[in-house]
Structure formats: C-alpha cells, structure tokens
Design a protein around this nucleic acid. Structure first.
Lengths: 366, 366
DNA sequence: CTCCGACATCAATGCGCATAGATTCTTTAC
DNA sequence: GTAAAGAATCTATGCGCATTGATGTCGGAG
C-alpha cells in the first residue's frame, strides 16, 4: 500500500505543471496532443486517480447524490453485531426454505433505491447510500448531507427541522410525503386512488360487503392517504357503517401474533382485510395460515406496495403496485433539476399505480 | 437555495476561531462547555453541515467504501434513456404478472451489495455505489476509486491492470475470484464443493445417469470452478463419458431461445441440466415450458447462486445457495482490516455454500 | 507576589485539485 | 520580416476543514 500519487507526482514525472495535468483530465482540448499523451502515460505508470475530495472541494460540487433511509433492516436486538462478519456458517449440507424469510426479498426501500441507483449511473453521478441506526443517526445524516449534491430521503428517517434546514442548502426530495415546504421536494404515488381502485375491485368484482382496513401503528402520510381512499370508495359505494381499522405494530417483535389476537377478539371476521402495506398483509397471512384460516376461501387479504415477496407468498398477494423504480428515477431527476436551477421551486410529483390481481383476493386459482 | 455555511460562518457567529468550531465537532473534550454550546447553537441556526470533501481532504481519508459492478442491469439497446424518468406510465387499471419479470428480483449482485451496505452502516462508513456502463466506464471507475477508503468490485467489471494498479493504493476486494496478486483481496464461495454436493445429490438421490452441464459463454472463474466440481463428482461416482457442456450466451438478446435450439439439436435430452447459474436455469425453464417439456418430469434442472427469483419460478429451483449477504459483509471486514493495517497482505476468503433442494430436481411436489 | 503548569483558544498551514489570469510559444496575415 | 491572434502552458490562489504549535488565561504552589 503506497501513498496515492497526486497531480504533483504526475506533473513532475511528465515534466509539466500541475495545471497541465488537471487540464489533461478536465479540458483535454486545451492541451497539445503530445503533452496529453505524455501526461496520461505518467498518470498510468503511477496509477494516478484524482482525489474525489479535492476535486469536489475545488469545484464546489461532489458529483454524488445521496439516499438516506431509516434503519428498516436493523439487526435485531439479540444479535451480536461483531459476529456478523466472518464467523457464520458451518457448512450445512441442506437447507430448508419452505417458509422463506421475507427479509431476503427487497422491500419498498430497496426497490426505490434501485431506481435511484440506475438513474444516477445513467447520469454519471455516483450514489452514496446511508441510513440511520440507533447509534449515530445524527452523525450519519450529517455525514451524507455533507457529501452530496442532492439527497433523497425516506419518510421519518430524519427529523423535520433538520430536513427543512438541509433542504435550504441542497436539493432534497422525500419519498411518500407531500412536500412540507417550498424547499423540500417530494415523490409519491397515487395512494388514495390506488386504494379506491382496489376497494372498488373488492366490492364490485367480489361482492364483498364487510371490509376491514389494517394499518400500521406509525401513521405515515401514505398510509393515511390509503385509508382515506378506502373510506372514500366505501362511501361512494353506498356503505354506511364500517369496521374500525385494525392496527399492526409492525416492526415490534411478534406483531403478527398480536395483530391476529386483535382480529380474533372481534365478534366476527370481516370478509376481507385491506392492508395498508404488503408487509402487513404477508405477516397477517402467515398468522391466518397458522390458525388454519384459509385465504382467500375464509377471508380475503390484500396489500399495497407491490413488493416482490408478494409473488412468493401462498396465496400470492393481490395488491396495488407502486412504480418504485420509477419513483427512484424521478427523484434523481428532480434533484438534478434543482441542483442545476437552484432558483426554481421545489416540486412534488405523484406517480400512478397499478392494480395487481392475484390469488389472495380470490381472483386467481391457487 | 442558499450558500452552504462553512466553519468560518459558524465561527464568526459564535465569536470564536474556526479551530474551535472544528474542535467542537471532532474533539469536544478540548472545548469548554459554554463555548461548545455556543458553537453548537450557532451551527444549528445556520444549518451547518461539515463538508465531507474538505474533511476528507484534510484528514486524508474519506470515511466511505465503494462497490463497483458491471452494468448487469443496463437498459436494453432499444430503450430511449431519456424517457426513463418521468414520462412513463399511463395509469393502467390492471396488471398481469403471471409471468413475472425476473429483473424485478434482486440478482446476485444486489444481494451481495446488500451485505456490503449493512456492514458499512454498522461500522459507520458510508457506501458509494457505482458501476460501469458502455459510456464512461473508465471515468466512473476512476471517480469512485478516488472517493473511497476501500473498494469492492465484481469480477470482470474492471480490467485486470487497472485493478491491480488501484489495489496498490487502496484496499480492494474482488468477489468470486481468486486473488490474482498479493495486493488484491478476494471473497468467494465454495463453488467446486457446492457443485459436487449438488451433483452427488442428483446422482445418489435421484439416480440420474445422464447429466449435462450448462455454462455461461463468458468464462468466469466461479463458473469454471463449478464445472470442475461437476466433473470431479461425476468421475468419483464412476461416470466415464459425459455430455459436452452447453453454452448459454446469457446477456445476449434471445439467448434462452438459442440455448434451447442447441439443446434440442442434440440427439437426445439429458436427464438433468446442471446450470452454472440460477439465471441460466430460470431462462432455460422458461423455454422448456414453452416447448411443452415438463420440469422435472421430463427433464430436471438445477441452478447455482440461490437468488430469490428461484423461489418464485414454477417449479421452484433446486440450487446451491451462496451466502451472498455474508460475502458482502466479509468484504467490508477485509477492506477495513487492510485500511487500518496497510502492512498486512491481501487475503482471500472462501465461504461455505448450502444445498437447497426444491422442486426442479424432482424432490419436492409441485 | 511570582512562577509554573493546566487548560482554552487561536493563527497558520496543508490536504489535492480546478481555474483565473499571466506568460510564453506558434501560427497566421500582411 | 513583423505584428497580431491564438494556442499552450504556467503561476498563484482558494475551496473547507483538521491539526500543529503558539499564545493567552487562570489558579495554585512556593
């Protein structure tokens, strides 16, 4: 491991000034061909790679975008973090995945991030990925904010005032939120409309009359909009009274069991459980199955998001699919627009969703 | 969008020197409590976030690791890149995913990257994600190499000499390769052993006598090792002659069709197709199904990697599962070890694999 | 009352690069 | 052959921060 060569080293070796070296890389047309070749050769021999930090500092921009999420896949409390790398597996000869762990599938955050990554690459930006964890959350956020030309964040991963503050300095787009301020951009999908569409399907195609909503305990704006869409459709379909929504303490250990208890504690089962998120629906279906309640024969279940795991579940999950990759790409577009035109106002976009009809509502055969 | 405040702004507002501001953040114990509070207040009011570039430059390290991959999910040739963000979807009322696009599932690269991301976060490093594409591949690599304290790369995403050169400056670990040099580290899995295990299963459990290997056209070291494992097991099971391997031009448009042609052009079908990668196996199963050839009844198929899509296929794919997340975490461990102890030699680790028995070999009922 | 050490703060410098402006070398036009 | 225009290169500077070594301040020991 030798010291990284700098422009000075290259300049010396090529017998030119550092400005010429820099020009060779940044403004090649300004350098005579022979000189250029000279410099490039010297650079190659030395293994020169420009320091991104120095470049960013000098140019006043980093050439990177950031994505920051909450710690949605944090290690469980019981885990020893130090054992994470290295000491894991004795060679197990066989492996049973008849009940696949959903965590091995990408969730909402992953799929959006993928879109961000693709678009960054296409536009020649690098992507910096970070996220909060219990420990150094503030620090981590400051770190990434200080390293990027624009930042995409997932909801509730950063406190509102910090976010508002940062968004005055660099373009920031938040997913799944309406933009709070005129400096903070947003990318959402049509939560209310999607849920109306789904609810309408359940009512008119399946003839359900007894629908119950299941929402998360942490009220995210998107969940709220979905609940509103649900209610709106019920009303416009002429339903008068409706179940109180069930609340899933998603994230808390054992939440599916607890949710199931609450469901069974009701005097009767609804015909269909309309879940605000795929993950809730999948967790619930696991419990229903464990209690011998057949989906969709005895009760139908639907989700919202369209994560890949919904294809693997049994039965496959009927859901509303968000255009997650597109949301990520769109976010990048907004960030770079604003970075290049700082005078423009923040913008919020809402993207369309799709109804995906599968087995868990009773449409497709198992 | 206002100018980002700097230490100078904070210092002025707090009535101290920039050194004190810096100390407040980096060495808080050296600053009197009252001063510290003063500075922190000023920083908060201004929305100060330290510049990562300046910090990195001053300290000689970036606090970031990088991951660089080939462009495994590049846009197809026919796509208009400019249409990617924004102008996509008319709101389709329904959506049929009875034949899910495998690209919506994470592939090998994604799952390894996820491990890298997790471990980076756990260790307080940010992660920079980049990858080559046809256009500015060299540039992209130089960009990321200049921004990180250590770099993980996927095989064949960077030319060997560039890699060798960079690995003399910063720690570099390559996945799925044996380490070429004493400066380049590697993380692989037990490709040969895994394939032997699988082959042995096919022979002794299923009694297959007519096995054919299907490999990729681009000979990666891991594919080679798998083929060797396959051959080794056949020999040690007393098989004399064996099929020539089939070659899948994976990546090229229409490769599954072409592969299928080549398969059918043989005088007889083997009993089982042992594929070097899950993706080949899945593509092949699609073609087999299209030709009305039933898997596993008429022909068995197996894969290698253990990507999530193999759970969704019909039939579900029997395969060897690499510990992808662990490989990513391990890579981070190696990089940071070397970053902290530059005098130590590069190291290569081989991680164990698991046999995952599902439907496509005929073990589980459909 | 003086001196010394501990503590708090500051001034000055360099990290590696991009770039404006100055300088030198080449080419073109007359 | 010469001057002006242009091309090529260089010198000098600043980006924002961390850090070293210097300076200043204060309290206690002598």
């Amino acid at each position: 491991m030798v010291r990284r060569p700098t422009v000075y080293d290259v300049a010396e070796r090529a017998g030119v000034s550092i400005a010429t070296v820099s020009f060779t890389f940044r403004q090649p047309h300004r350098v005579k061909r022979s000189t250029k070749e000279n410099v490039l050769a010297a650079a190659k021999e030395l293994g020169y790679v420009p320091s991104g930090n120095a470049r960013g500092l000098a140019r006043g921009r980093t050439g990177a975008l950031g994505i920051y999420s909450f710690d949605y896949y944090s290690l469980g409390p019981g885990q020893d973090p130090d054992s994470a790398a290295g000491s894991d597996g004795a060679k197990a000869p066989a492996f049973d995945d008849s009940n696949p762990d959903l965590r091995s599938f990408p969730v909402y955050v992953d799929e959006v991030q993928r879109g961000v990554a693709l678009e960054c690459r296409r536009r020649g930006y690098t992507l910096i990925v970070s996220g909060g964890n219990q420990a150094g959350s503030e620090t981590a956020f400051a770190d990434i904010a200080g390293q990027v030309d624009g930042l995409a964040v997932f909801p509730r991963s950063v406190s509102d005032d910090v976010l508002e503050s940062i968004s005055r300095m660099i373009p920031v787009v938040e997913f799944s939120e309406r933009s709070h301020t005129d400096t903070l951009s947003g990318v959402t999908c049509d939560n209310a409309g999607g849920m109306r569409l789904l609810t309408e399907h359940l009512i008119s195609t399946h003839g359900f009359k007894d629908l119950q909503f299941v929402g998360p305990s942490r009220i995210f704006p998107d969940s709220l909009a979905r609940y509103e869409g649900f209610q709106t459709q019920l009303r416009s379909s002429g339903f008068a009274e409706l179940h109180d929504p069930l609340v899933a303490e998603e994230g808390a250990p054992g939440w599916p069991e607890k949710l199931m208890e609450n469901l069974l504690a009701q005097e009767s089962l609804p015909e269909v459980l309309v879940c605000a998120q795929d993950e809730i629906a999948l967790g619930l279906m696991g419990e229903l199955s464990a209690h011998g309640i057949s989906v969709p024969d005895q009760i139908a279940v639907t989700g919202f998001d369209g994560i890949a795991a919904g294809l693997v579940s049994s039965p496959q999950l009927t859901t509303i699919k968000q255009p997650m990759e597109l949301m990520g790409r769109t976010a990048v577009g907004i960030l770079l627009d604003r970075f290049e035109h700082p005078e423009t106002a923040a913008q919020s976009l809402e993207l369309p969703v799709q109804l995906v009809v599968r087995q868990s509502c009773g449409c497709l055969p198992l």
